[in-house]
Amino acid sequence: MNTWHKLKWPIIALALVLLFNFIFSSGFFQVEIKNGRLYGSLIDILHRAAPVMLISLGMTLVIATGGIDLSVGSVMAIAGAVAALLLTKTEQPVAMVIIISLAVSFLFGVWNGTLVGLFGITPIVATLILMVSGRGIAQLLTDGQIVTFDNSAFEFIGRGALLGLPFTIWLVLFTFILLTVFTKKTAVGLFIEATGDNEKASAYAGVNTNVVKMLVYAICSLLAGLAGLIVATDIKAADANNAGQWIELDAILAVVIGGTALTGGRFFFAGSLLGATLIQALTTTILTRGVPVQWTLVVKALVIIAVCLLQSETFRRFILPRWKKVTV
């Protein structure tokens, strides 16, 4: 019941977007099977949403501790750059390429976690440092060039299919299940929620809040790295300038839509996934309606403000009496 209450609005919004497409875009709901693989707008939405979904899962944990990670886009760029360099400049097997680039992402997360957890730097600022320097690092790695590669095994991450569905969707599903088990079947979830809800009290009850924070930033960065690999394989290149640009807002938006409060505390993975799907559905709809892609930025900005306002207690108190007056 509680879950439904939290997910009511995103589900309704998603339903509205789909309904709109059902009425105005013919063929939106068509799903075809080609070469043993499903194709169609719906599948495409999930596939395109995968990077944001992955990051939003990590971001959910970060936000649950009352933090924020603005550096995810830069970490994506770094992961893509590292992978591309390893593929083009070395003879490393694909597995090692993936492991190394994810490990690098993880380390950047530990860095963020150290700044926030150990040094007590405001999360916005701590991750802002990496947000900007990180893109610089990615640019240095790639020498400011777009590094293209050609490796079908590696490209499976973003382009492959399994049991008829894009591999990216499986990746999201797998991460979702893994994280759910990891947080709900161990004490991790409780410690994260406690830290986000009242850090001091948690510390006095013995929770190692520093480790909790390190952990969530590390997980978030790791997932950002994974998303970076997906994006890189999608275009068969590492583009340090554009990879993951603006994605931090999408991820934060997805989390907020999904019902996890920015002030920390309770978190909802399913809500975040739903939020990410909603965002992508909206973007796809905008594109299929022939609206210039730039508009998506504007629309997202408006949506995030609207969602935050709806969740804001103050706003409801401000608007509800007036609303009632109008309707009566």
Binding site: W246, I252, K300, A301
Partner: peptide, 20 residues
Amino acid sequence: YFALPAFLVTLAGMFFARGM
């Protein structure tokens, strides 16, 4: 007035302005 986090509002502002 609506007690929204400053970074979020201004991040949305950034997207709005850049998008426009």
